[in-house]
Amino acid sequence: MTFEPNILAFCCNWCSYAAADLAGIGRMDQPTNIKIVRVMCSGRVKPEFVIKALSDGVDGVLILGCHIGDCHYVTGNHRTMKRFQVLERLLEHIGIDPRRIRLDWASAAEAEPFSNMIREFTEQIRELGPNPYAGSYA
């Protein structure tokens, strides 16, 4: 059986979710591996969300917000960006491939870049293979 990645994407209400919507309306060709969780702001995405997803067996996690400077809440995504940098390093310290997580920005109009991003990330996760980090102690 070929491996189909299971990917979780956190999209902010104001930009990236609208981009996803637009991509859908535009019937753009994109993989179906992504499950989207709509959040009001990428700043809502606590690192716990990402760690929990990986811990529960999700193969990759995307966090998509508004571009810096365009946040509906002005600085919500500033915090996301800082946290993400720390989280990436932390995963690496503990032996989890940081390429399984990605932070990016998409405006409400960027349907095509959104689509491309998803395609790229899905391929990247496909190459990395199934999440080996899940599961408790036997």
């Binding site: 690192p47 760690i51 929990k52 720390v86 995963l91 503990i94």
Partner: peptide, 9 residues
């Protein structure tokens, strides 16, 4: 890694 990663973060 939940417990310990969260605390570390």
């Amino acid at each position: 890694p939940m417990f310990h990663l969260i605390r570390a973060y």
